[in-house]
């Protein structure tokens, strides 16, 4: 659906995007992830044809963006960063204007505008001026502008920035819903968001791709140890001794003492063992009562930090 081949963007001597290549298949939701200034927006601006790459080609649904821009642009609905909108238009006027410049057929225009307004939940505010809307609604108006004209590809640049938690969940579920019928590329620096919505993640740092994989694979790939948190009632302080008996535990650390006289510890082991069962059995033998036993999931956060800090030693490019 979208092919990005050896794309480079230079501003004078500064290289914003450095020879990146990746592919997005039909119906996929792909997340572009990276710290601020990594080149996410530049990449998206190139895919949408807003700026031209210095080198490389971008192909959208078979149309080369530099050779057939009109056809390629028709396949794309773009929600730019910072949601630029015409503040003096009403919501309906704006969506209609977007439909017009996207050359939606005149006879179908009203029907399609109506459909998009319903889909994005803007029916109540359709007659309001955009400048009087809250941030969350503006975001939806921008989304409606991207959606109208039924593009096959949606490019969403930081779609949840500046929203409150309720609005974030709403926008996320809208994106998930849209993902059933569209190919979506979205950028974010919020990792949990990407792991919830996207099927694949492209991690970019300093203009380079450092990993392309599913969120789950990235998590397991980078975690080198397993961590278990255990809360115990242990009046006689037997836990250190008990822990030493379990050879799988590589490290034990006291975290805190709770108000009900229980203590929380962190236990570390190698990546391939699950400590929970062993700990449960062994501690029971030692008369240590377990109140809580919980395995810490390696998060995408860890994966991300590791990849960014690790610089360019590739973790995986598959």
């Amino acid at each position: 659906m979208i092919e990005i081949k050896n794309v480079t963007k230079k501003y004078g001597k500064v290289i914003a995007v450095d020879n990146i290549s990746f592919e997005v298949k039909n119906g996929e939701i792909v997340g572009l992830l990276g710290p601020n200034g990594a080149g996410k927006s530049t990449t998206m601006n190139m895919i949408t044809g807003f700026i031209e790459p210095t080198e490389g080609t971008i192909i959208v649904n078979g149309y080369d963006m530099s050779k057939k821009p009109k056809k390629a642009k028709r396949e794309i609905g773009y929600m730019p960063e910072g949601v630029p909108l015409y503040a003096d238009m009403t919501v309906r006027e704006f969506v209609k204007f977007m439909a017009e410049i996207k050359r939606v057929d005149k006879r179908e225009r009203n029907v399609k505008v109506e459909k998009v307004i319903e889909q994005t939940g803007l029916k109540d505010v359709e007659k309001k001026l955009i400048k009087n809307l809250s941030r969350g609604y503006k975001q939806r108006v921008s989304m409606a502008g991207a959606l109208v004209g039924e593009p096959k590809v949606l490019i969403l640049d930081e779609p949840t920035v500046g929203l409150d938690p309720k609005q974030i969940t709403e926008i996320r579920s809208l994106i998930k819903e849209l993902g059933k019928t569209h190919t979506i590329i979205l950028s974010s620096h919020i990792l949990s968001e990407v792991s919830q919505i996207c099927q694949r993640v492209v991690i970019i740092n300093k203009g380079k791709i450092i990993a392309v994989d599913t969120p789950e694979n990235l998590e397991t790939k980078v975690s080198s140890k397993n961590i278990v948190y255990v809360t115990v009632e242990d009046a006689e302080n037997k836990i250190e001794k008990a822990a030493k008996k379990i050879k799988e535990i590589t490290n034990i650390k006291f975290i805190k003492e709770n108000s009900d006289n229980t203590k929380q510890y962190m236990l570390e082991s190698k990546n391939d063992v699950d400590l929970r069962k062993i700990v449960f059995n062994e501690f029971a033998k030692e008369n240590i009562t377990i109140f809580e036993l919980k395995k810490e999931d390696a998060t995408l956060e860890d994966a991300f930090m590791k990849l960014i800090e690790g610089g360019n030693d590739n973790v995986g490019n598959n």
Binding site: F50, K73, Y78, Y86, I101, K102, R103, G145
Partner: peptide, 14 residues
């Protein structure tokens, strides 16, 4: 200034 040029320039309009 407002960024709305992105809407125009990414549309199929020349």
């Amino acid at each position: 200034k407002t960024g709305t040029e992105q809407l125009l320039l990414t549309s199929p309009l020349s």
